[in-house]
Design a protein around this nucleic acid. Structure first.
Lengths: 253, 253
DNA sequence: GCCTCTTGTCCATAATATGGACAAGAACGC
DNA sequence: GCGTTCTTGTCCATATTATGGACAAGAGGC
């Protein structure tokens, strides 16, 4: 798969779109897109404004930030069915959520990003709700991303981490830290972050591989840190690992 | 709004995507994309294959057809909320569906296309179900498209019809026919097709305008032709017109 | 007022996307 | 089998297109 050429502009436009997607409803300022993509400002400006004319991007009146526009969900309607993963993961999420009681996430890999595609609220009265379906982050900044990186061949993981370098700053991390976390996750057998993206939370993630051995998703539990001591971390990890293996089975069949 | 330049390739890629979206799950053969966009084959080929590498387009193994890929719904997750129109139209659709009993559609305009965004099945035992949420067609080939064209200034409508010319052939119609239907719809006050896209069906559509006077959507009833004689056509049209006005009110407030 | 941040625009230039021409595969008829 | 007519895929010289340095103009802080 040597990169086909003659379409630089299209690839750049898509890179811009993926950064804008990470900004969700609020959008992203132009300068941030410039930073994250490494493109020059005139180029990003031109791309973004053409995409606005085409209805693919919107500009928020007040803030001037750029966000994914209306036409993207319209194009998405061409694919009506929910993904196979979402269907086969459903019973596992149900079970694990009931057993654990804390917030559960299903996160997929898409390019160099993680994307939260499902969330289950548990029964415990304190729940970490900051991450929503649709949340998108560079691979490496969340425990789910660390888990997915840990499950792939080290050179591939390193490549992705290097590609995301420019975006790490916005999440207050860096290449060295991420590499360390990935190594730790490989040793542990699951991804973990003592300091979640939200203050005072802790997350545990297991990876889910497709039949060809590539990690495609992660299952994550997030809770206030005090609820995930060493003992309970072990318990939760075992449940997640068990369900992850079941989902892998279900994908295969 | 003079078209900004320096992004021909991006605009072309989007034109390709919109054609692919009309093909839904089944996708569209390359030759058809070439026809519909008016681009040359090498250009379309290059664009489509770059989009495949980027995950925006997929190729169906068996048929070799090209279709909207996984990443499009993934990008769409960045916009979680359903559109305002869908929310405010809900009670009207409910009411009209109950009153009429035949299948009801809500269709929006997106660029030069119509896009079905909601469908309600009625109580009558024979229902026209061939059009699904996500169905996308050139403006002019469905009664909803005719209604929307009829509700806009004649020069704008003519421009769109001309732009869609190359795509009409696939739907067995042409510019002259569409122009005739639009004129008829203007006179009637609603759009109508004695011969629906599906054999033996008939459709009636009313337009819905935004506060600025631009038609943004249409509400359609489709039924087997025998169920929509002149008398009932009148009745159904009155209900649709009443509800369309109510939706317009609701959008404004 | 000044400074620093952002976004927006211009235009000469180089690099990029273009499409004519050619090739190969698939489906059909005979 | 062979010819015909579809389709899709590839090459590469060319000119058109996208690029980005430089400059400008707002917006906000102090």
């Amino acid at each position: 798969m040597e990169p086909r050429q003659g379409a630089q502009a299209i690839r750049r436009a898509l890179a811009v779109l993926r950064i804008l997607a990470a900004g969700r409803e609020d959008g992203v300022p132009l300068a941030e897109v410039v930073r994250a993509t490494g493109l020059t400002r005139p180029t990003v400006h031109r791309i973004v404004h053409v995409l606005i004319e085409e209805g693919i991007v919107e500009r928020h009146g007040k803030s001037g930030r750029y966000a994914i526009g209306n036409q993207v969900p319209e194009l998405a309607l061409a694919r009506p069915r929910p993904s196979r993963l979402l269907i086969v993961a459903n019973p596992s999420l149900q079970r694990a959520s009931a057993e654990i009681g804390d917030t559960l996430f299903l996160t997929v890999r898409t390019g160099n990003d993680t994307l939260c595609v499902d969330r289950r609220i548990g029964v415990y009265p304190i729940q970490v709700l900051s991450i929503e379906v649709g949340a998108r982050r560079p691979l490496g900044v969340s425990s789910a991303g660390v888990a997915i990186l840990a499950a792939m061949p080290a050179p591939d993981a390193r490549k992705i981490i290097a590609a995301n370098e420019k975006r790490f700053e916005a999440y207050r991390t860096d290449v060295a830290t991420v590499l360390g976390e990935v190594t730790a996750a490989r040793r542990l057998g699951y991804g973990m972050r003592e300091i979640g993206l939200v203050q005072g939370t802790k997350s545990i993630s297991t990876w889910i591989k497709t039949p060809d051995g590539q990690p495609a998703a992660a299952m994550t539990v997030s809770a206030v840190r005090t609820r995930l001591g060493p003992r309970r971390e072990q318990e939760v990890a075992e449940i997640l690992l068990r369900e992850a293996r079941m989902i892998e089975q279900a994908i295969g069949s």
